[in-house]
């Protein structure tokens, strides 16, 4: 340790240096978080504890809807995103292709919110351009009951950022696969399928799991896109929470919004923990 730095920045000062950041997080993240939980468990004059009411009846189906949406869009995002990454690997001889795709993925992964919803309304809304185009070739989405604000509609929109997010996670992971592994596997008699099944996939598993978790949480927390697609009437938990904050008029149920939010935090934390455990197991060989 250098004495001069230590002198000007002694132990006390060092801890002081972290104080602004720590206080900031306490005030603007931890305190609101704790407030959510405190209110969520506060029954007040309501007939039922909000934490219980939040996962029964109407709200239970909201959670199921949100979670299903998150998992379905994450699984599709994983599969398609991985396919794109593998396609890029196959086409590695095409100069510049990878940079373009990865660059656009970074852009698209950050997209979302209102503008993205608009884009899909313009394309796949009732009178959307794509909707009418497809109808012209006898693919009648609306006739089949497809609505952009419904489950599969939202999935279609979410994929716009889920796919590139996954591609961004997998491309570097694929780079980590050494050519010698595939060649060693082949020289030992493995077919391409066996190589992927026994070598590449197990090595990629931690990255895939991490990416999948990212996608699930990403979709679970999303709000704006679904809100705009459905003009504020979506079944999503996030959209439901809004009612309680704005209209504290629903008598006796003031704290239900907090309970919904608390459950969201619990579920996300649970997902993170679960994936931590899975990744750790998939990663045993790293340590």
């Amino acid at each position: 340790m250098n004495s001069r730095v230590a002198g000007s920045l002694n132990k006390r000062a060092r801890h002081l240096a972290f104080a602004p950041y720590a206080i900031f997080l306490l005030v603007f993240l931890v305190w609101p978080g704790l407030y959510v939980f405190r209110s969520a468990f506060d029954q007040g004059s309501a007939p039922k504890n909000p934490m219980i009411e939040a996962v029964t009846g109407q709200y239970r189906s909201s959670f199921i809807f949100s979670l299903r949406l998150s998992f379905v869009s994450a699984i599709l995002g994983l599969v398609i995103g991985a396919t794109v990454a593998v396609a890029l690997m196959r086409l590695s001889h095409v100069r510049g292709l990878r940079n373009v795709v990865v660059g656009y993925s970074a852009v698209a992964a950050n997209m979302g919110g209102i503008p993205l919803a608009f884009a899909f309304l313009a394309a796949f809304g009732m009178q959307g351009l794509a909707t009418r185009l497809l109808k012209g070739i006898n693919i009648d989405l609306i006739g089949w009951g497809f609505r952009i604000s419904d489950f599969w509609g939202i999935v279609l929109v979410y994929l716009y950022f889920q796919i590139p997010l996954m591609t961004l996670v997998i491309v570097p992971a694929l780079d980590g696969l050494r050519r010698t592994w595939s060649e060693a596997a082949q020289s030992l008699g493995a077919s391409t399928r066996q190589y992927w099944r026994f070598v590449a996939l197990p090595i990629l598993t931690p990255a895939l799991l991490g990416g999948f978790l990212l996608l699930v949480a990403n979709a679970f927390a999303a709000y704006a896109t679904a809100f705009a697609l459905s003009a504020g009437s979506s079944k999503l938990v996030t959209v439901q929470i809004r009612f309680f904050l704005q209209g504290e008029t629903i008598t006796g149920k003031t704290n239900l919004g907090y309970a919904l939010a608390a459950w969201m935090v619990i579920i996300t934390a649970f997902l993170v923990l679960g994936f931590q455990v899975l990744s750790r197991r998939a990663e045993r060989w790293r340590r």
């Binding site: 060693a184 596997a185 060989w285 790293r286």
Partner: peptide
């Protein structure tokens, strides 16, 4: 390649790490 019955040893990192 996988039907040739040829064993190969590479410079390094060829063991399957997992």
């Amino acid at each position: 390649a996988n039907k040739r019955g040829i064993g190969m040893v590479f410079q390094n990192y060829s063991l399957f790490p997992h």
